[in-house]
């Protein structure tokens, strides 16, 4: 997923950069044609139209999924500089709702798969419980990394859990 995001972004930056440089380097050629204001209007309306399509397409199904009735609830508490969970074993394919909080400062719950790809995250904020729903589709050893600067040992604030195949 992250790779696609990277490639799409770099592609867009590349095309935009190329279009701009083509104009900017053409100082000695002809000026922009008289129709340039029409071109710009089309461009602006085009950007708006694309924006509407992207917004509707990506928000119609709300990206923060809510949990089904049979979701497994896992409570996570955190503090400087530790994580604590109800369970360290989560069944594969089971929808999980993490309920995350902290006893001191802000932390960030980042869940990393066995290949160290971030699969889901949510804020851990004092006095609040933040919920995030995820279904694991790969078994193995997962890690929690802290995503929010929380002091000197922020980068040591990690925790392991297991996603197990059910039998």
């Amino acid at each position: 997923m992250q790779l696609s995001i990277l490639l799409i972004t770099l592609g867009l930056m590349g095309v935009a950069g190329w279009l701009i440089l083509r104009a900017v380097w053409a100082t000695e050629g002809p000026s922009a044609p008289k129709t340039i204001n029409r071109t710009r209007s089309c461009f602006l309306w085009g950007m708006i139209a694309v924006g509407v399509v992207i917004s509707v397409g990506s928000l119609r199904e709300w990206p923060h999924t809510s949990a089904a009735d049979d979701a497994l609830i896992v409570n996570i508490t955190s503090g400087q500089w530790w994580w604590e969970t109800d369970t360290t074993e989560i069944p594969l394919g089971q929808q999980v709702e993490f309920r995350v909080t902290t006893e001191d400062v802000n932390h960030g719950l980042g869940i990393y798969d066995p290949d160290m790809n971030l699969v889901v995250q949510v804020q851990a904020m004092p006095t609040y419980t933040n919920k995030v729903v995820h279904t694991f589709d790969k078994a193995g050893q997962y890690q929690i990394l802290c995503m929010e600067l929380c002091g000197i040992a922020h980068h040591d604030m990690t925790y392991d859990f297991e996603v197990l195949e059910q039998n």
């Binding site: 701009i20 104009a23 100082t27 002809p30 000026s31 922009a32």
Partner: peptide, 11 residues
């Protein structure tokens, strides 16, 4: 966009 239009062909 304006930057590009102002520069293009300006010498």
């Amino acid at each position: 966009f304006s930057l590009a239009v102002y520069i293009k062909g300006s010498g």
